[in-house]
């Protein structure tokens, strides 16, 4: 019986890996130029702001196409607390896998992500991230980063960040860096904690080998300035860390 289950899991993983990577390439090679054309053709007739919004929407569509390429072996469940999420806001997410940035396509609103140095240097995807105004937290002094982040929020753009700074894989959540919490304290924008569960092996850290499974993305109720206004950045980052950690325990105990 166990052997049958093992064989079934093996076949599922085989199908997933054999189909996903060619599809990912296809989606990237055909989807990116096509989506770019949809943005580029009307560009001269729109304002810079409208073009940037369209460009970021294109990235969301690309992200959804990539996520869709993993179906049916990887299912994705978007879960949200009652009510709509405030816009703009800062999405604070735990970070287990390289698939996390693609999952941001499930969150509402126009989004830029806070990224580490290396994603900016990826061919094509890195260039698009740069053009879309993503923020590279390690490539600028904090003051410049905070100013750029506040500028995005002023324009109504949400910011998604992974304050662990690196993937935790199947281990415990790493400590948070306080940069985005300082931006929240300066701008008084609501913070939405986002729990990502189930993708620790999609793919595992240090591997390309995807495992079938279900990824759950759960946005928790926003934490507004009325609540966090008096907190220090250190206390703020740790309280949101604890909120996400406890919710992940609940999500994974079922």
């Amino acid at each position: 019986m166990d052997e049958q289950v093992d064989m079934s899991e093996f076949l599922k993983a085989l199908c997933l890996n054999m189909l996903f990577y060619p599809l990912f390439l296809l989606v990237s090679l055909i989807g990116i130029p096509l989506l770019t054309l949809f943005v580029a053709i009307p560009a001269p007739f729109r304002s810079h702001r409208q073009n940037m919004r369209a460009f970021r929407l294109m990235i969301v569509r690309y992200g959804r196409l990539v996520l869709g390429s993993m179906l049916p072996w990887v299912r994705i469940a978007k879960e949200q607390s009652d009510g709509t999420l405030p816009q703009p806001c800062i999405y604070i997410c735990n970070h287990r896998s390289a698939s996390d940035p693609f999952l941001m396509a499930l969150l509402p609103g126009e989004i830029v992500q806070v990224v580490n140095v290396w994603p900016f240097h990826l061919p094509i995807l890195g260039w698009f991230a740069k053009w879309a105004g993503y923020l590279s937290v390690k490539e600028m002094p904090f003051e410049a980063f905070a100013e750029a982040a506040a500028g995005r929020l002023e324009q109504g753009i949400n910011i998604a960040a992974f304050p662990e700074g690196t993937r935790s894989g199947e281990g415990p959540m790493g400590p948070f860096h306080s940069s985005m919490f300082r931006v929240a304290l300066d701008t008084r924008v609501p913070v939405v904690p986002v729990c990502i569960s189930g993708n620790e092996r999609i793919p595992p850290k240090g591997s390309w080998h995807l495992k079938p499974g279900t990824i759950r993305v759960r946005a928790l109720p926003p934490v507004t300035a009325d609540t966090y206004g008096e907190w220090s950045p250190f206390v703020f980052k740790n309280r949101i860390h604890d909120l996400i950690e406890k919710e992940l325990e609940i999500m994974e105990s079922k």
């Binding site: 904090f142 400590p175 948070f176 860096h177 306080s178 940069s179 300082r182 220090s232 950045p233 250190f234 740790n238």
Partner: peptide
């Protein structure tokens, strides 16, 4: 850094 969880900005504080 590792055990108390302070980062570079917290160190300034």
């Amino acid at each position: 850094f590792q055990e108390l969880g302070l980062d570079s900005l917290d160190i300034v504080d």
